[in-house]
Structures are given as C-alpha cells and as structure tokens.
Write a protein that binds this DNA or RNA. Sequence first.
DNA 1: CTGAATCCCCACGGATACTG
DNA 2: CAGTATCCGTGGGGATTCAG
Lengths: 123, 123
Amino acid sequence: MQPDYHDETSSCLRASELLGRIANKWTLLIVRELGTGPKRFNLLRRDIGDISQKMLSSTLKSLERDGIVIRDVTPTMPPQVEYSLTALGRDMKAPVEALASWAIQNADTIDAARKRFDMHNHG
Amino acid sequence: MQPDYHDETSSCLRASELLGRIANKWTLLIVRELGTGPKRFNLLRRDIGDISQKMLSSTLKSLERDGIVIRDVTPTMPPQVEYSLTALGRDMKAPVEALASWAIQNADTIDAARKRFDMHNHG
DNA sequence: CTGAATCCCCACGGATACTG
DNA sequence: CAGTATCCGTGGGGATTCAG
C-alpha cells in the first residue's frame, strides 16, 4: 500500500522531511517537559516559559497527529486536559534529552565562540 | 568571569534560546553530513539533497559563528573551500545522530499515525 | 481552564542572477 | 567552484479576542 520508504535514497529524503517537523525548538521543549510526566496545558505553558498559547496548542496538535503525544480530556467543569507521551514519544525522549543537555552544557562555549566571531567581523 | 548560567532558571532559558538556533532541519542535516568527514560546498549540497545554496551558506556561516564548523579555504583557481567539524561539532555529532536515526527508524510509524489521525478528522 | 479564530508582522527559505 | 545579492511568497509565530 505505502510507497517503499526502505531504499536508501528515499529514506534520506524522508529523514530530511521528518527532521523538518521534529527538529524544531517547540517540539523538543515540549517532549522534554512531558518526559517528566503528564502535564496540563497551562502548567506546560508555564514550565516551558516563553511559548505562546497558539504555538503550544498547534505544536501539541502536530505531536498528537504524529503519535508522539496523547491528549486526555476529563470533561469536568472547568475541563481538564492532560498531555502525556505515547510509547513512541517516550522512545523519542532519550535523543531529545541528549541534544538538549548538549546544548545546555555547551552554552558557554558557543557563546564565547560567537563573541570571538563577531569581534573579528565587526572590529 | 562569565555570568553564572548554572542556576536552573537561566539555564532553562538559555536552553530554549540555544535550541531555537541548533534544533532546526538544516543544522542537523549539515552536522550529520560533516560527521563523516570534511566536505566541500557543492558536495555537501548534493549529499544533503534539497537544500538551496542560500540556506547552505547561511547555515554554514551560523555554524562557523557558533564554533561548530570550520571553514578552510584553499586559494587555488578555482577556489576550494572545505568544511569540517570542530571539536565542539564532533561532540555534537552523537546527539544529532541519535535524533536523526530515531527519525529514520520511526518514519513509518509516524506516517501511519498521521494517516490514522487524518482519517478520523477528515472522514 | 483550554483552547479556536483572527489579524498581522517578519524571518525563513526558494529562484534567479551576478561576482571572483 | 563558491559564494553574495535581490526579489518574493509562504508560513512561523505573537497579541488579542471569542467560545465551551
């Protein structure tokens, strides 16, 4: 049924396509937050920090579509919606965390490199 | 010397900021390509596949600024420019590869999840 | 509380053409 | 070969408002 994604050429193309959707700031931050357990919308929003509600809801919808996140609605008043990782999402957690912690650990180094580069180019 | 990025609050903010620059399609694909060894501009372009020369050169410049990539010019005619990873870049290779191979390995699963999701919503 | 809808701006990113 | 410059459209993403 599906086109065969398993020859090397098209798998590379698909890798590039998938990375386009997966490898973005909000996706990684959300997966990272949900990696510590289920969270509700506004808590997620607060914990991520500087994400707008639009981006949070649209990114969550994409992640739900991709089978990475589960949306669990408790129809109370007011309604409660809890987001959590699927098995696929939990599987994604490790690589995401690896990249995130690399970024954190090397923040200073990168910052210094930037300053050096800008000094050369500016001054 | 440097401001202390090590308290939790600001390290999270910096993580988000850095991920915004690092976690994008082109950065990951380039680091991945260069992970196999130095490459010249057009070879890099061909191997990545669908990247425009504008995006390739601008992303390479950002990576050079961040101290992740080194640009090595051999002033011949025609000129040869070789790009390679710095120590920092090589250090980044593992997490990048982890995320990329996760994406490739789960391409089919994600695709199936999408189709299911779209069927529910469409039909 | 959890969003969807709307408006709007601008940066990402493609196409093309031109330099050294 | 290895870019830079320019034009230009699309969509990312913020602010605000409305709904369930």
